[in-house]
């Protein structure tokens, strides 16, 4: 294979700046999407564990809708189809005046999709807590929301820190799909560098390293969260 390696290209103007811009967009889209996914997913996950039938059904419907459609399809739906489905005025505003339409669509898409996965983790965490804990809370006079607020959520979320780390990582990696609707994130910038310079190996290597670096930071942060929230003696010793 004849190929002129030129790693220096990555640090030249304007390509270095493109990569920086890419990192910025990746971080912005992923972080905002994660905030949405975490809050919405928590809500939906809790709904699926409530005693009442209606919230359970709504939660289940949400999860099945958002996790069963390919993410790329959802990306296109949010960007191209959704503005046509909403009332005319809103649709016009989305197409003409909404700031950063690509990034906004990508955040909504990634956030709502990941929320369905977060919801399942939250449900699994809460359901893994013995039924007696809920009973003990109710028996002392706590109301259902208090049982969740003080007992089930604090314990359930501690249990699911490891799988939640995976979801948090996945949202960074999935954010690369946003390039299909024109968000200038890392992968898009890498492709653009390739188009301009034909140095594709260098550009995509840079993208790879950036993703690995970002996800390793996430892993390190979540490892700290896991240590900080550990319950003394819980799940370490033999059972009761």
């Amino acid at each position: 294979m004849r190929y002129n390696w030129n790693w220096g290209i990555l640090f030249q103007d304007p390509y270095f700046e493109w990569l920086i811009t890419g990192i910025e967009w990746t971080l912005i889209v992923s972080s905002l999407a994660w905030i949405l996914a975490f809050s919405l997913g928590s809500l939906v996950g809790v709904m699926r564990t409530l005693p009442q039938r209606l919230p359970r059904a709504i939660g289940a419907a949400y999860v099945e809708l958002f996790r069963n459609v390919p993410l790329l399809v959802q990306m296109f739906i949010w960007f191209y189809v959704m503005p046509e489905l909403v009332p005319d005025d809103l649709g016009r505003w989305i197409k003409r005046d909404m700031p950063y339409p690509e990034a906004t669509s990508a955040i909504l898409c990634l956030g709502t999709y990941t929320a369905s996965r977060v919801a399942e983790q939250v449900r699994a965490g809460i359901e893994s807590i013995p039924r007696g804990q809920r009973m003990a809370g109710l028996a002392m006079g706590l109301r259902t929301w208090q049982v969740y607020r003080y007992l089930l959520i604090p314990v359930g979320y501690r249990i699911i820190v490891p799988p939640m780390t995976s979801e948090f990582l996945t949202i960074f990696k999935n954010s690369s799909l946003a390039l299909t609707i024109g968000v200038g994130e890392v992968l898009m910038q890498a492709r653009q560098i390739e188009n301009y310079t034909f140095q594709g190996f260098e550009a995509f290597t840079a993208a790879t390293i950036i993703y690995v670096a970002v996800t390793l930071v996430v892993v390190a942060v979540m490892a700290r969260v896991e240590v900080k929230t550990r319950i003394p003696g819980y799940g370490v010793r033999k059972g009761r």
Binding site: P130, G132, M135, A136, A139, G141, P154, R158, R240
Partner: peptide, 21 residues
């Protein structure tokens, strides 16, 4: 109001059910 009533009836369980956190 069951919660109000339960607040005045103590209950002790077979598996203790202390809150682990």
């Amino acid at each position: 109001d069951l919660s109000k009533l339960r607040a005045h009836i103590g209950m002790v369980f077979q598996n203790f059910e202390l809150f682990p956190h």
